[in-house]
Structures are given as structure tokens and as C-alpha cells.
Amino acid sequence: MTRYVMVVDLRRCIGCQTCTAACKVANGTPPGVQWRRVLDLETGSYPDVRRTFLPVSCMHCGNPPCLAACPTGATFKHEDGRVGIRYDLCIGCAYCATACPYHQRFRVTRQSFAYGSEPTPEEAYKFDSARLGVSSKCTFCSDRIDLARHTGRVPGVDPEVTPACVNSCIAGALHFGDRDDPTSNVSRLLEQNRHFRMHEELGTDPGVYYLYAEGDRT
């Protein structure tokens, strides 16, 4: 089996938002919609203050609450663990958005542009009317992963078949690959580092792992 996951090294992320920008360019998301972003968390009190950059996106859960909630079957799971949306089936009820504990569902009902009422050439090129009025989210750049099947290239290793955010990360904080392959980059990282997944207690089996220290597993 294949289970694609993302691994985020919190020790490396510098909060530059390059992944955020790369995602917007690659997927043409409208203003106000960010399938990926980096949270900037400040904790502690002077003089012991910490700042944590926390990249968040759809967790592509193994047990996605959005899938169970969806009344149309528009939300579905690929065999390799990715969670997708069939825009042509979605009715835009946003039930999935309330079911997602990671706030990674978005719905826009009208077209909008970054600069005034006219689209930039890039926005005009990327505009997809099928995404209006329906739910949308990170797909792990599904078109690229699907390309891997036909070309034999390896997601997470070959940039052409790796999510745009991972390719763009300047700090090497983002990694993508097959967790079920013990020789994959993500399996090695998870083996060698302590990590957590967000809101595991909700039973969602999220597919995004956060590394925070060297050492065996969690």
C-alpha cells in the first residue's frame, strides 16, 4: 500500500511563507483562500519567549471527518491516502468545513481578484469556475501525484511530481513521501526524529507529521 504524508520539521521552518505563495501560484486560489499557510505562534513570557512557525494545510486524514460529513460523496479518498473533492458533485453546504478540526476547507461564492475588479493574467489563466460555490482545499497537488503514476517518478523525490509547497521550501522544512515505504525519505525522518500530529486525540489519523527533536519516534 501507499500512504502519502507530509513531514514538517519545526526546527527548520523560518516562517517565510514561500510555501504559502507557491501554493497560491500553483493552485490559483482566490484572495482570502490559502490552502497552505504558516502560523506564527508566540508563547511564554519575557524573558522566556518562544516563537514557533507552524505550517498548516489539509491533513489528508486517514479517518477524515469531512468525508463522513459530506452529504454528496464529493469528498473522497484516493487509495494512497489523499483526500480529494469532486467539484461537480459538491453542493457547497460547507458541512465539511464545520467538520474539519483543522480549518482547511474553504468556500467562495463569487469571483474576486487580488488587484481590483480585473484579474491579473495569471488569475485569468488559473480561474476555474467549477470552484465557485463549492468546497475547496489542499489536494497535495494531486495533478502532480497523478502524473507520477504515468511517469514512474517518485513523489517527494522528483520535483515534477512533488507538491509545490515542498519544492519551494527554502529551509528544507517540508518533506513529502510514502509513509508505508520504509526506505522513503519521510519514513526515515519519522524513524529518526520525535514527532507529533495535531489533534490526534480526535481520531482523525492526520497525514501531516511535525518533527520537533532528534530521537526515536514520539
Partner: peptide, 19 residues
């Protein structure tokens, strides 16, 4: 809902969806 003319699609997933 965002796509009201597709409302009948809401009948497609009664296996798990309470909606």
C-alpha cells in the same frame, strides 16, 4: 448552499452523512 441547483446530490451519501 453554494450550488442550490445541485441540492438533490445531498441524497447520495446516506451511508455516513447525517445531512
Amino acid at each position: 448552499i453554494g450550488r442550490p441547483w445541485r441540492a438533490l446530490n445531498a441524497y447520495r451519501h446516506s451511508a455516513t452523512s447525517w445531512m
